[in-house]
Design a binder for these strands. Structure first.
Length: 598
RNA sequence: GCUCCCAUAGCUCAGUGGAUAGAGCACUGGUUUCCUAAACCAGGGGUCACAAGUUCAAGUCUUGUUGGGAGCACCA
């Protein structure tokens, strides 16, 4: 990377100045962080550094003085820097030689799909995401977490991590039992009995489909039997059928998992009882009728806690309040039954035990309150909670015809993820969900995504890729095919010297860093913005010079150098889109409206 | 009442402590004998919610205030 090269040159210069006696710097200056970044304003050269302003105090020189010193003694044996000057309050503005910028092209064309990817760092990471309850189909509320988790996994892989993707299946507890009872009610209905669905039953029609499967496979063998007889069968079938559907829809969205981790296996393998023993051994448990450390928390009369207070009979509590949680949490009810949290803690303990270097949970905003409990629970085990990163994905408001669409499972108007994908397409859905950072809520306007699909940002980027593909094809037709990466040494890249061309080279050079930052911060939108900016510069360049400096011209040497630039741009854009699993078409289909006009 | 997230253009949102705060959409006006007009160019639009603090430098960091959202059952 060029900025790394500049950083090195500056470090060498500082060292030189210290040795030559012109400068006294404290030790910490050697590790001081200074920036080297692309300038926003071309008047400021190509790159700019704040090194003099950051180090001015330590060096006991004014920023301008130090900057001048550095500029005058720049240690640049390779001659990559053409011009260096001091500006403003003490910035050092640098202009690179064209040759230094041209090195990016062979680097990209040689690396191909690997450009932007980082070598394996020997670290492993587990990304757990979606983990929707297997009580029904995925709805659009799950979409953002699904795409965000998938993108996080892809980015971390590109950053050099060995990534495992996991879906945690909550197949234990009252919700799946409710599902089983609903299936049974529908099953009775199919056998001609009049039924009344329980108030908490799942009203969706998909339950009837599951009941049909039950009827088809088992006939009437469960009719007029006590619950204890049919419940296990209904439960297992319901979970299996729902998971089948979930897996299928995720597949449509281009999302796959390495592991499906079942909650019941934690119970079967005694991991739930073991974590209780671990906590007890550490003296983290106590028996009580209510949490002792609640910091005099005020519970409102209309709170759910008050509403369900008759169920809260006490039991075994974990001292999570010691580790920043609002209050201690119950793990075992008075009858000794584990609560959901306990299994989840056992699950996270299990994740640690599997030896990952990094653990990532992608949670919806409605689970945000769960975070401090898990973190506290891990700390109470003596585990390093800095290894555990919980990405809290904020809620999305889906707008249709100006109104917000609700998508709760209990409401009648379920908006399924499946339907969203069918309506707007996977690429559009993915792009729109990933173009916003996870911690802001945003509005997904369906009408806009559909009606104005011609102005859709995803098409803008894809069109850019297609345009470059067409250019390479046109060159072939014009009998000037791009010679390719192997014969790059025969191409005179010195011909590339337009300011826009230099700018695009510098921009592409940033791609690996963009990928790394996006991975480290779990911010896929950085890659999308990068792609948009890069393609925007290309469209602009393409239009500006369409009458003068054409890419394919009679000057064969110039044509080859520009085709090399286009090939590098295309590769970079392709890699950016592939990184997020968005398709990069070789040509764009005309839109429906254009077809109508023609 | 408490915890977490957010507040930047008419709308939806970017913005690694750095120079004159950006993009898309919307609006106004231009650009096609030509490598894809799904494109480009120009224009109008801003008290970066408010206040104090830290810093050579704050949209960015700290604290407080206001406003919006999510959550605060032994449901999962």
């Amino acid at each position: 990377m060029i900025s790394d090269q500049i950083r090195y040159i500056i470090s060498q210069t500082l060292q030189y100045l210290c040795e030559a006696g012109g400068l006294t710097l404290a030790v910490e200056a050697q590790t001081a962080i200074f920036s080297v970044e692309l300038t926003k304003n071309p008047d400021h050269g190509d790159y700019s550094s704040n090194v003099a302003m950051v180090l001015s105090k330590l060096a006991k020189q004014s920023p301008k003085q130090l900057a001048t010193n550095i500029v005058q003694h720049l240690q640049d044996p390779t001659g990559a820097i053409r011009k260096a000057e001091v500006a403003g309050p003490g910035f050092i503005n640098l202009t690179m030689t064209d040759a230094a910028l041209h090195e990016i092209i062979p680097a990209i064309l040689k690396a191909q799909a690997q450009f932007g990817r980082h070598p394996a760092n020997g670290q492993s990471v587990l990304v757990e995401f979606v983990s929707a309850n297997p009580t029904g189909p995925l709805h659009v509320g799950h979409a953002r977490c699904a795409f965000m988790g998938d993108a996080a996994a892809r980015l971390l892989s590109a950053a050099g991590y060995k990534v495992t993707r996991e879906f945690y299946v909550n197949d234990v507890g009252s919700q799946v039992k409710t599902l089983a009872r609903t299936i049974y009610a529908r099953y009775q209905e199919l056998h001609g009995e009049a039924i009344q669905l329980a108030a908490n039953a799942y009203p969706g029609a998909y339950v009837i489909d599951i009941a049909r499967v039950l009827q088809k496979e088992d006939g009437n063998k469960w009719m007029h039997q006590p619950e204890s007889v049919w419940l296990p069968r209904c439960l297992a079938l319901g979970i299996a059928e729902n998971l089948k559907n979930i897996r299928e829809v995720l597949g449509q969205a281009g999302i796959t998992f390495d592991n499906w981790y079942f909650e019941h296996s934690l119970h079967d393998e005694k991991k739930v009882s073991k974590i209780i023993e671990d906590y007890r051994a550490k003296g983290m448990l106590y028996e009580a009728t209510k949490a002792e450390n609640s910091f005099d928390k005020v519970r409102r009369e209309d709170s759910k806690s008050a509403q369900y207070s008759h169920q809260q009979l006490g039991g075994t509590f974990l001292k999570t309040a010691q580790y920043g949680d609002e209050e201690d949490r119950i793990l075992l009810k008075s009858d000794g039954e584990p609560v959901y949290l306990l299994a989840d803690l056992a699950y996270h303990q299990e994740k640690y035990a599997r030896g990952f270097d990094l653990l990532i949970d992608v949670f919806g905003a409605d689970h945000a309150g769960h975070v401090p409990r898990i973190k506290a629970g891990m700390q109470a085990l003596g585990l390093d909670d800095t290894k555990l990163h919980i990405l809290s994905v904020q809620i999305v408001h889906l707008l249709k015809e100006g109104k917000e669409v609700r998508f709760s499972k209990r409401a009648g108007d379920i908006y399924l993820l499946e339907d969203l994908l069918a309506e707007v397409g996977v690429d559009v859905a993915r792009f729109i969900f990933l173009m916003r950072s996870a911690h802001t809520q945003f509005d997904f306007d369906l009408d806009l995504a559909l009606k104005q699909s011609n102005d859709n940002p995803v098409f803008y980027v894809q069109y850019g890729h297609a345009r470059m593909a067409t250019l390479l094809k046109r060159a072939l037709e014009a009998n000037q095919p791009f010679m390719g990466a192997e014969k790059l040494h025969e191409i005179d890249l010195q011909k590339l010297c337009l300011p826009e061309e230099r700018r695009m080279l510098m921009k592409m050079d940033l791609f690996p860093e963009v990928v790394m930052l996006a991975a480290k911060n779990l911010e896929p939108h950085r890659v999308i913005y990068f792609a948009q900016e890069l393609i925007s510069e290309f469209h602009s360049y393409f239009s500006k010079y369409r009458h003068s400096e054409r890419i394919i011209s009679d000057d064969k040497a110039l044509t080859q150098s520009r085709l090399a630039l286009v090939a590098a741009l295309k590769q970079t854009l392709y890699n950016a889109l592939m990184l997020l699993n968005i398709s990069a078409p070789e040509h764009m289909q005309p839109s429906g409206e254009e077809l109508l006009e023609a």
